[in-house]
Design a protein around this nucleic acid. Structure first.
Length: 296
DNA sequence: AATCGCGCCTGACGGC
DNA sequence: TGCCGTCAGGCGCGAT
């Protein structure tokens, strides 16, 4: 890996923060955004040399003719919609989802492929983007028409940072809904990109009980919740910047700051506000963590 | 229309 | 030591 590449990444990190990498972290929106930035910094305007597909069996089969489509194409732009990454080339878009266990890293073309590296795209400048996904819940799809009109992306709700996605919006969408608020905010058709971990964290900070019916929460609490969701995600994205250097390591990938999680995975530990033991419960087949004293 | 529950998949972990 | 069951969970889909 050339020194100039390393310095590009180091230049993207925040001063005064240390690197942290959790190997098996589930990619949530902040990890996807961090990955987007890493790819953009390293690969924008680079041209594809070759593509190798070693295992096409993902959530959907990997577009089979990528190796004949992509070579010669220049990566013009890397964007994100919900947890989907969109790599724009002149004649189409490569849509990538990391699923439960996926990661992308950019390494030297000469570095050996590792277990579960299912797809690799070699770019000009000795750079290789590898898609690794042990559980194969991810997705790599080549689209030649507008990706936003594809069924996977078409019906997604607004991004949390979109000004329209405020407390009033969530309040309006939730009227008459009886499902738990946690399931409501994890529905990507309502608000895009809130996964289990940050749903738990956001509800704790907003002091809303995860099991409460979405339709029985008032406007003011939704305003607080939407602000909290934005600040939690923003904070995690900023931290992600400090892990960008892991993007070029063989073993690492951008990860969380695990110690910033206040409730997730902390059943039995004391609530940081009231000291009461945090509880866990399955809500909508997903583990939920909360403080029954602070959250109503 | 809304809600619920399943299945995809592998690795980690705990119990025996 | 090894085997087996359970859990983790994003997402789409089918059933109710």
């Amino acid at each position: 890996m050339p020194r100039s590449i390393i310095s590009k990444l180091l230049g993207a990190t925040l001063p005064g923060c240390t690197t942290y990498c959790e190997g098996n972290a589930v990619p949530e929106l902040p990890e996807v955004e961090t990955t987007r930035r890493g790819i953009e910094i390293l690969l924008q305007n680079h041209t594809v040399d070759t593509v190798n597909i070693y295992d096409k069996r993902l959530r959907r089969p990997v577009t089979e003719n990528l190796p004949s489509i992509l070579p010669g194409a220049k990566l013009s732009k890397v964007t994100r919609r919900a947890k989907y990454l969109l790599l724009d080339f002149l004649y189409g878009t490569l849509v990538i989802h990391l699923g439960m266990s996926g990661s992308l890293r950019v390494v030297s073309s000469k570095s050996p492929r590792q277990k579960h590296d299912h797809v690799e795209i070699h770019f000009s400048g000795d750079l290789c983007m590898r898609f690794r996904d042990p559980r194969r819940f991810g997705l790599l799809l080549w689209l030649e028409s507008n990706p936003m009109e594809h069924t996977l992306l078409r019906d997604l709700g607004p991004e949390p940072f979109d000004p329209v996605c405020d407390g009033g919006y969530l309040f309006d969408r939730s009227r008459g809904r009886t499902l738990a608020i946690k399931n409501f905010i994890m529905d990507a058709h309502i608000i895009a990109g809130v996964g289990n971990i940050y749903a738990n964290e956001s509800l704790f900070r907003a002091r809303v009980h995860p099991g409460r019916a979405a339709g029985r929460i008032g406007l003011r609490r939704y305003q607080r919740l939407s602000n909290v969701i934005r600040s939690v995600l923003t904070g995690a994205i900023e931290v992600g910047g400090t892990t960008l250097r892991d993007f070029v390591s063989e073993t690492g990938a951008p990860g969380y700051f695990g110690h910033e999680l206040q409730v997730y995975g902390r059943a039995g530990e004391p609530c940081i506000h009231c000291g009461q033991a945090l509880r866990s419960k399955m809500i909508g087949q997903r583990s939920s963590f909360f403080c029954s004293g602070c959250q109503r």
